[in-house]
Amino acid sequence: MSIPLSLLAILSDRSAHGYGLKSRFEESTAGAWPLNVGQVYTTLRRLERDGLVLPEEGEGGARQTWRITDAGRTALEEWFGTPVEDDPPARDELSIKVLLAVAADAVDVTDIVQRQRVATMERLQRYTRRKRAADPERELPWTLLLDALILKAEAELKWLDLCEARLAERGR
């Protein structure tokens, strides 16, 4: 996740001070990725050095507010305009574990797949419980985040089914 661009995205609406940035970031992303205030200040100083934000006149210290510059807006537009490419894929522990288990003859892959299936399904059930409790209109970011997590868990389950089926075919 790009913290600098996330902060620019929030500043594109209106200026804010460090703590306000932290809370607005967390609000917009349903609290799933907590930021600490120290991280926010360090990032703001880097953005200032690169000419993407400027401190506003007036109070300094903790109440110091920041605004986005024209260069900042350009950088932000570029980010929003560029599709996310997960290629090469980020390191994924489950894929690695299963591939290594297939390679290691002594390991029972089916057992790993079955345990994982139960764990992933239970995670999916927990997300669904959260979604049930959420109001999709008032809590849109939270609902969208849960949708994403649920569909990732779904993809994982379908992949585990495929692993199992392919291993069974190989075993014949």
Binding site: E26, E27, A30, G31, A32, W33, P34, R123, R126, Y127, R130, A133, A134, E139, P141, W142, L145, L146, L149
Partner: peptide, 8 residues
């Protein structure tokens, strides 16, 4: 696994 306990 989502950090926030009861939604935002």
């Amino acid at each position: 696994l989502v950090r926030v306990e009861d939604g935002p």
